[in-house]
Design a protein around this nucleic acid. Structure first.
Length: 466
RNA sequence: GGCGCGGUAGCCAAGUGGUAAGGCAGAGGUCUGCAAAACCUUUAUUCAGCGGUUCGAAUCCGCUCCGCGCCUCCA
């Protein structure tokens, strides 16, 4: 079966092929840099990482743009409160975001695009919308008039036909013609950052940056547009309204949305105090890979209930895979072994591939890998695993890791070099030979304290950093 | 109220018509000078409940119960 994704637009699973040859043009909504990213944000970004890695594994090349929203209400409020400029304030959280995503092993998109670096393009876009009759002014701000965009609601599958243009609705501070209208350009408020442009002295609304930056770098019709489910409405709906009003063409062919993550069955919130960042998790002693594994292991369209127990389970599951890989690399295998292993490896790989082709069913893909691990371990324990099968088994793990990327440990403690480890292992082996077990155990303990685990096997000592 | 998602073993979770994957935890065991490591075995006559369709349903239909999300800037 071909590669296919669930498309929010059509509410169907559809076969995916890009519009432009082998290149996948993808836009994903990135962070608003007013704070550290929490694990909910990271779930969505991890999903997008798995998505792009799988597309590449399937032979496509990526042209992926992610925005960084660096002008917005909370940013302005917080930066002013701290007496910082927008740039000073957002630089801190932009760097934190890049550090976190690197630690989580998220591939960098081909381009990050900052809102503040695309003001000119946004102004032009708003002027085009104005010229085509999609905007109106109210108290110095420019609004988008959704009544003039008949298919508004097609992404979120809301029916707005009951809302009449001109039916005046009072909403908070803004005077809009229609409750669903949204701001394209906000009039300047005294003391706040603004850009003095032909359309007024003000700043961009949130939605316009994505339309503009996506089309600037990826063209009028994207292959994939992705984000969290909460963005379906209004953000992505509004992006469609803006972009398609400008071009008259479909803005994105596939809309993919990651479900939310809950913590201990509850929505993350400040009042409950259950918001975790990657920093928090690392400080608690969990590895970034454990979080990556946990976030990736639950299929992206399913709500993920985050718990520390789940994180611990993820760590253990990774260990199992790493141990299997280490065993493949270090054990000695007989020339002749159980026949049919090559076919079983091939079958596992097929199951793995087909699971991910099926709308990124990561849970099923993992099942295929673990099933093979158990099978191969059993054969190895029986002494029937042939040396010739090891490369294919390692290749399967490499395939797995090209998507999940959890097998390489994040080194926390490098106080003991590899050479030191080898030397100490040699010393321990001598101690064991002379039956000086006290010294042998002392060395093992010493290495353990530096995060290095020794294992005695029939083929000698193997070690790993934990 | 509108739109949508989900309820599968202690926990996480796959499976969308053919007789319950996988991970973690638990229990038992193998290996070992010891093992904290590693590995193996085992753990749901049953898929929220009640009806229906079918030779056959966790999977389709209806009803009920429960949990959750979005409905103006929250991934």
């Amino acid at each position: 079966m071909a590669l296919r994704f669930y498309n929010t637009l059509t509410q169907q699973v559809e076969e995916f092929t890009p519009l432009h040859g082998n290149e996948v043009r993808m836009y994903t909504c990135g962070p608003t840099v007013y704070n550290y990213a929490h694990i909910g944000n990271l779930r969505t970004f991890t999903f997008e990482d798995i998505l792009r890695r799988w597309l590449q594994a399937r032979g496509y090349t990526m042209n992926h743009v992610m925005n960084i929203t660096d002008v917005e209400d909370k940013i302005i409020r917080n930066s002013m409160a701290q007496g910082k400029t927008l740039e000073e304030y957002t630089a801190v959280y932009t760097k934190a975001f890049l550090d976190d995503t690197a630690l989580l092993r998220l591939e960098r998109p081909e381009r990050y695009a900052k809102a503040t670096e695309h003001i000119d393009e946004m102004v032009s876009a708003i002027e085009t919308l104005r010229d085509r009759g999609f905007t109106y002014l109210s108290e110095g701000s420019t609004y988008y008039r959704i009544a003039n965009f008949p298919t508004y609601g097609k992404l979120s599958h809301n029916d707005f036909s009951g809302i009449r243009a001109g039916a005046r609705v009072d909403v908070d501070e803004y005077d809009k013609a229609d409750a669903r209208d949204f701001v394209l350009w906000k009039a300047k408020k005294e003391g706040e950052p603004s850009w003095d442009e032909p359309i007024g002295d003000g700043r961009p609304g949130w939605h316009i940056e994505c339309s503009v930056m996506a089309m600037k770098y990826l063209g009028e019709t994207l292959d994939i547009h992705a984000g969290g489910v909460d963005l379906v409405f209004p953000h992505h709906e509004n992006e469609i309204a803006q972009s398609e009003a400008i071009t008259g063409k479909p803005f994105a062919r596939f809309w993919l949305h990651a479900e939310h993550l809950n913590v201990d069955m509850q929505k993350m919130s400040k009042s409950i105090g259950n918001i975790y960042t990657l920093r928090d998790i690392v400080e608690m002693g969990y590895s970034p890979e454990a979080l990556r594994y946990l976030l990736a292991s639950v299929p992206y369209r399913k709500k993920l209930n985050f718990t520390l127990d789940g994180l611990a389970a993820a760590s253990t599951a990774i260990e199992r895979l790493r141990n299997f890989k280490l065993r493949l690399e270090t054990d000695r295998y007989p020339e002749a072994g159980e026949p049919g292993m090559a076919e079983r490896i091939a079958k596992a790989r097929t199951q793995f591939d087909e699971a991910l082709d099926d709308d990124l069913n990561t849970a099923e893909a993992l099942g295929a890998v673990f099933e093979f691990v158990r099978d191969a371990n059993t054969v190895m324990d029986a002494g029937n695993f042939a040396a010739a099968d090891a490369p294919a088994a390692l290749a399967l793990l490499a395939r797995f890791d090209s998507v999940f990327d959890v097998l390489r440990p994040t080194v926390k403690d490098d106080s003991v070099s590899d050479a030191d480890v080898e030397r100490l292992i040699g010393e321990r082996t001598q101690a064991k030979k002379s039956r000086n077990f006290a010294r042998a155990d002392e060395i093992r303990k010493q290495l353990m304290d530096a995060g290095i685990v020794l294992e005695d096997t029939k083929d000698g000592v193997r070690w790993k950093r934990k």
